[in-house]
Every structure is written in C-alpha cells, then in structure tokens.
Write a protein that binds this DNA or RNA. Structure first.
Lengths: 195, 195, 195, 195
DNA sequence: CATGAATGAGACTTCATTCAT
DNA sequence: GATGAATGAAGTCTCATTCAT
C-alpha cells in the first residue's frame, strides 16, 4: 500500500502537540497521534525513533516558538505585550500550560527533556530581564535585582496560570489588571525617586 | 475508630504518594504502590475501588495537610514562616511540587480531582490574604487589593518552585532573600505613607 | 475472569519447550506458548519477567534433566546406555537437538544462557570421562587422554546429531553400530596390550 | 557478465552474512543488512524477492566456498590441512560456526534450505572419505568403514566447534593436538598390521 | 536502478482489574 | 481481610514488504 510523502515531520509534531494537550499525558498514545495525523503508527516510528523522541521534539518545537525567542526585536511596548500574551494563555483550558505542565511531569523521568524545559524558562527570564532594563534604569526596589524581577515576573505568570488551570472562575481579568497596576506603580516609584 | 488492618488506608496513601513522587505518573502503577507498601495488588483493591479513587485519596490527604489548613492559628511571624516553608519546598527534587504537578496533570482528565486541587490553591490564597491583613491594614500599592496580593504571593511561590524543578542551579537562597526584601520594602511603603 | 491456579511454572516451561522445538526460534512467540499452555500471555508474564527469562528457564530445565545429571549412579552398562540414548536422539526430527541448537543460537545474544549451555556440555564431557575410566584403566591410545576421549565422544554424538538433523536419510543405525564397534576395538587394544 | 550495480548481489550477500553472524538470527533484519551495506531496504528488494531468498543465497554462497569444494585438487597433506582449517574455525567467536548454526536453526522452517545445508555436510563427508582413502588403503579398525570414518571426522570437527562456541576456555590446541595424535596412531595400526 | 516513505500485522510487555481461596 | 494467580485490553515497538518517484 505505502503512499509516499503523506506527512512531514513537522506536521506530525503539530498533531502530537494537539493530541497531548487534548488527551493529557495518560492518554497520549501513539495510536492517538497517528489517528489525528491520519497515518499509521508505523509512520510515526519512521520519523521518530521512540515515543520519548517525539515528546522531546515537541519540547524543542515549543522552545523554538517560545515568546522569548520571538520577541528579540526591540519594542517599546514589549512588556505590555508580554503581559497581554501571558494573560491570553491564562485560562482553565490553556492549551499551552496544559502542554507545558504535562511535559514538566514527563520530564521527571527524562533528564534531557528536563534540561531543555529548564532552558526555555531560563530564556524567558532573561528576555524579561533584558526588556525590563529598557524601562527601568535600575530596580525600583532596593535589594531586588533586575534579574530577580525577571524571575519573579515569570514566576507570577506561571503561578497565575496554574491557578487558572485549577479554578474555573479564576478572575483572570481582574488579576492581570492589578498586575499591570503594580508594574506601573513600581515604575512610578523609580520616577519619583529620580525627581 | 477505624479497625486497623494489617496495612491501614493511611499507610497505603502514604506509600502511594511516595511512589507517585518518585516514579512519576507514568510509572505510578498499583503494582509499584503494592511493592512499596509490602502488600499485594489485591490488598489495594480491598481499600480502594479503583486506581482513580486512590489518586483522589492522595489529593484529599494533601489538602488535609496543606499549609493553609495547618496555619490557622494566629501568629505574628506567620508570613515569614510561610515564606520559609515555601523556600524549603523550592528545589530540584521537591517531593511536594513533583507530587502536586503530577496530580495537576492527572486532574486534566478528572474533574472532581481538579476541583479539589483548585480548592487547595484557593485556601492557600485566602490564608495568605488573611494573614497579610494582619500586617497590612491596607494594600501598600493602590489598585492592588489585598486579595490579589494573596493570589500573587501564591503564584510567586508556585512559579519559583516550577523554575527550581527545572533548573538544577536555580538560586533559591538568593531569590527568596530578595523576595523577603521586597516584602519588607512594601511594608515600609505603607509605614512611610502613614507618617 | 481470572481463574486461579490454572497452570504451574513447570508446566509452562514444558509447553514452552514444545513450542520452541516445534516452531523454531523464529516463531517462538509468547502467544504460541500461551496457546499451547491454554492460558493468556499475561499469565506467562506473571511467571516469567521476560521472554528471555523463560528461555533461560528452559535451558536450566534441560540441564537438570540432562543425561549427565541423571546417570550419576554407577552402572556397568553405562557407556552402552549413553550411546543408545544418544542414538535415540539422533534423527531428522530430534526434539532434543532442535531445541538445543535453537538455544545455542539464542545464546549468541545472551551470555548467561551461553554459559549455562556451556556447563551442560562440560558436565556431559565429565560424566563420560568418569564412566569411561571405569572401563579403561588408561587410554587405549597413547597421547590421547581420557579427558579428551570424553570430549571426543560428546563431539561425535553432537556432530552426528547435526548431520542427522540435516539429512533425511542419514544412516543412523549403521553409523552407531560402527561407533560401537570402534569402542569395542579400542577396548580390545587395551586388553591385548595388557596380555 | 553481471552488470555491476552500485551494489552487487555478492556484496549484499557478504554483508548479510556478516550481519547474520554478528547479530544472530533474532536481529537479522533487512534493515540491519541494509545498514551494513550502506543501502536502503528497498535496494535489497531489488536483488532478492524476499528475506528467505536472501537467506538461501547465503547458504548457497557458503556451499560454494566450502572446504569440500575448494579442496578437490589432490594433495598429500590434504588431511592435515583439513584438520588445521577445522582447528582455525574452532573458537568461541567462530564466524563460520555461528553462521552455520544460525542457518541450521533457520532451516527448521525451510525445507529447501535444510536440504542444501544437508548437501554441504554430505559433500564434506565425501571429500574427507575420499582423501582418507589416499592414506588408508583400508580402514584401520575392522567393522568401521572408510565412509563412516569420513562421517565421524566431520562429526568430531563440528562437535568440537560446538563445544568451543559454548566454552570460552575450551582447550582447542590441546584437543586438536590429541586428535592428530589419534589419527597418526590409527595410521600406525594399519602399518603395523601390514608388516 | 535505487530510494525513501509508508504500511499493517504481529511481537513483547504492562497494567488495572477480578475472583476463588 | 488478604492474597496470589489469572485475565484481556491496550500500549510501545519492529519488521518484511510495497510502491510512487
């Protein structure tokens, strides 16, 4: 039978991501991926040596498409955009955070994957720190370095996402509005001090 | 009251938690739980109708032992204690956060479990807010409610834990020192304003 | 469903040996073993951790039942019996030699198995040497030790079996008659020399 | 005459033999052959209709290169040479005997192959008998025909090889020295009798 | 000629679950 | 109460084979 060129590796990864986010890690089977992709399981094995390799490819794909990588170009609204993007991903059904936590849990058994996920977060931190430094010549709070602000912002974004994942009625709008308020107030602190 | 079996339900839950945190959800099998507990699989079925019931029991157990439940009693150092306890749990091998994220991911397929986990987080938020209000008569930043401070603090704690889970060399000490610094600075803002 | 006590480990080994000798290593599947045994594949895994372990158990079983082990008790016809037994096993359809060569080939990928098979052969050699020494106070041919006679006899038995496995019309009767003749002539050499 | 392809049929057979001897029959896959040969699986199918055909080709190739075929030309040291060659092949890692036993086991499911292997052995026997007759005008032992001596010698060679395959420390040198001694003694018997 | 992509059957293995004892 | 033996469905993975290009 053997139709050639039915599917590309990237398409397979996309299908796998879908299957993973929808079914969760428990039901993330190669059969389900194959069904989503409309190919046979054997085809998956032609492209990926094992299921783990496929999971790893998903992680790499996410890394490649991560916000940190995308937002390298300078931009005066970059922080606002970052926060807006984070808010969008903050929901009970967040595809991204479901996927990410699923991968996190998988990574407990796969050191390589864990390292790659770690790097993704690290990049996120660094990107935030770098962009923050464009607004804040120095930290608005003594004793809290700009690097730590990057770390804390990332933590807040992920932590809020976690809460949203677990509470159907989590007040995303309200919370993010106040986060922005907080950010502005901190900026003001700096400004006043400068006067 | 419970008639003590050769192995008690609670002991079984404890073993299950261990197995879950150590092996991850993928290898969380009743066989492995049975091995850890030193009983046979049949015995588990004597205590729990299904595997899901066991997982749910784990969640309930965690809820019962959560920080929020424990720290009801008033205490002037309560916030410092909370932060210290969070810092302790913030590590590459954190039993608690591995367990929690594993349950989170499991809950994507189990609404009841998800709700219970959601409540745990909610209680955590509320406990923090309540304790914060003992220090802060009002929010140190206009436009950011005390409730939101509770939410944000929880988010920070969880978000930092996530980063620590993924980065072997995450600077736990440094970060938490600055978090405390931040907390003190915010308190000072309030105090100065009051002058 | 789960009927208890359907089959014993030993019965399983026996079925496995049958399946192995009949189907050859290529078609030696756990499914086929299960079918022969009238159980499900899962049952096999309850008794043996892997397919390899089952193969190993077969080897051990053969070792336990090997001629060398059985013929420990002294017996004045022991050599004749050994030859008769070897002759019986020497045929185009020899269950034993099919099984043994199959295991031999499997052992190329399994050092433990190979060692155990090696020991079986070694025991066979030693048993033969020991029994020979009851007939031959010394070797009938100068320069050929009794140990080597044991080795050579084993080699002949195995080598003839190999030929019989590959030739439908191999003259088993004739060959073994002449082997016995050879043995007697060698004994005579010793006797004459003694005169 | 054969139009040379990028890879010739013979080269493919050689690679297949290597793969077979190295990996054993279990891992003798067309993929592995293709890898050794540096071509793709499809290419193998261009040369051989099925996997079995390839195995058969291997057998034929061995037959063509067998000692019996090569040593047709008369030679007064032919027996010594045969024994020396047999000794060389007698080792724990013997490529030839690993290959041969693997094919033997495969042939249990393939009558055509089995017949061809049978013929190889038969030729070996006959060649030995023929060469023996150049040294021995008649059998040195009454009741043991020259044909049977050929059969027995082949059996010894194969049987010893089997033992060497299974025992890392099998005393090849010692054993073969004594085999030669045996051969000489038998020759002497004849000579003395003739006096 | 040769290949690369795909297939599908079937292998080994795991595991939640059942049930007679 | 507890267990050990068994089940069967489902999962991961392998491999001979096919075929359009």
């Amino acid at each position: 039978m053997a139709k050639p060129n039915v599917i590309s590796k990237d398409a397979l990864i996309k299908c796998a991501k879908e299957s993973l986010a929808n079914n969760g890690i428990n039901k993330f089977t190669l059969k389900s991926v194959a069904e989503v992709a409309g190919v046979t399981q054997g085809t998956i094995y032609y492209h990926f040596r094992t299921k783990e390799q496929l999971l790893l490819a998903i992680v790499q794909d996410i890394s490649k498409n991560s916000w940190a990588d995308i937002s390298q170009k300078s931009n005066q609204y970059i922080i606002s955009e970052a926060i807006a993007s984070a808010k969008n991903r903050c929901s009970y059904d967040s595809y991204f955070h479901k996927l990410f936590s699923t991968l996190l849990v998988s990574s407990f058994n796969n050191e390589e994957m864990r390292m790659q996920l770690g790097e993704i977060v690290l990049n996120e931190n660094n990107a935030l720190t770098q962009n923050l430094s464009k607004f804040w010549p120095k930290s608005p709070i003594d004793g809290v370095s700009l690097e730590t602000w990057g770390v804390l912002l990332t933590a807040i974004v992920d932590g809020l996402a976690l809460q949203a994942l677990l509470q159907k009625d989590f007040p995303v709008e309200k919370t993010y509005k106040e986060v922005e308020q907080l950010f502005n107030s901190l900026s003001n602190l700096l400004y006043e001090e400068n006067q």
